[in-house]
């Protein structure tokens, strides 16, 4: 079986490597990928959305359906992890082969965690809300915020982190982020525009259409950030404790 797999893989590799001769040269400005759609995004995006970061504008405005259902996919993944791991059947053998040393969690580690976690959380909020003008946005801010809770759980214990950020709260945050995103779309729909057409918010906020799109991007990014943050924490809680929420890494 194994030699056969190797031969097949080698043949596929040779065929695909010869096919690269027909691909456009690397970093060619006239390649098909860079000439049709993306110049439009760069040249009109700033006038239409008032967002200098083109990636944020395309992510949350022009391709907002993609991002909405992507956050739903991430939410569904956290639910699936929960359903797979939390089985009520008894008699399962849970042998821990590898145990981290408990006495390694000393005062220095905890002090360092204590001083770095607030900075991480403020940085996460900065990344989220400054996503219009610098690299960043909902995904990055949410992941950094979730990583601060994971660090708390690593340096103290899973129970300690779960007292701060309860599991029920995690699930509520998961759902609320996706609901906030879909709710913005529904409000636009109620104002007589397309679903997720943020220009419909202009009447509510009392600003021009262009600024309404900018504010809509910010609200949507906040929704994505909340969902991603809660999903990262939920994945860690479930996978580190094996589903029983007793003891983590």
């Amino acid at each position: 079986m194994k030699p056969f797999a190797r031969i097949i893989l080698f043949l596929c590799a040779v065929m695909m490597l010869t096919a690269t001769v027909d691909l456009p040269d690397w970093a060619d400005p006239g390649s098909p990928a860079s000439t049709h759609l993306s110049p439009g995004f760069i040249e009109q995006g700033y006038h239409e959305t008032a967002t200098p970061n083109v990636v944020t504008a395309v992510l949350a405005d022009y391709r907002s359906y993609d991002t909405l259902f992507e956050s739903v996919v991430v939410f569904a993944a956290s639910l699936v992890v929960m359903l797979v791991l939390r089985r009520t059947s008894t008699g399962t053998s849970r042998i821990k082969h590898f145990r981290p040393k408990r006495e390694g969690r000393d005062t220095i580690l905890r002090g360092a965690a204590q001083s770095i976690i607030p900075v991480m959380q403020i940085f996460a909020l900065y990344v989220l809300f400054h996503g219009h003008y610098s690299p960043g946005g909902g995904f990055q801010g949410g992941v950094i915020f979730g990583a601060s809770f994971i660090l708390l759980s690593l340096c103290y214990s899973l129970k300690f982190a779960m007292q701060r950020f309860k599991e029920k709260m995690v699930l509520i945050c998961c759902a609320c982020g996706a609901l906030l995103y879909a709710g913005i779309g529904a409000v636009c729909l109620a104002m007589g525009w397309n679903f997720l057409g943020y220009a419909g918010l202009a009447g509510l906020l009392g600003v021009t259409d262009v600024m309404a799109r900018s504010h809509g991007i910010l609200a949507v990014e906040a929704g994505v950030g909340i969902t991603v943050m809660a999903v990262m924490v939920s994945l860690y809680y479930d996978l580190a404790s094996g589903g029983d929420m007793e003891e983590g890494l």
Binding site: S38, V54, V58, S78
Partner: peptide, 17 residues
Amino acid sequence: NPLPHVLILTAIVVGVA
């Protein structure tokens, strides 16, 4: 070109899920 960046940004987060 910003378009591949957007597609990949969502793909990474789906990847960790």
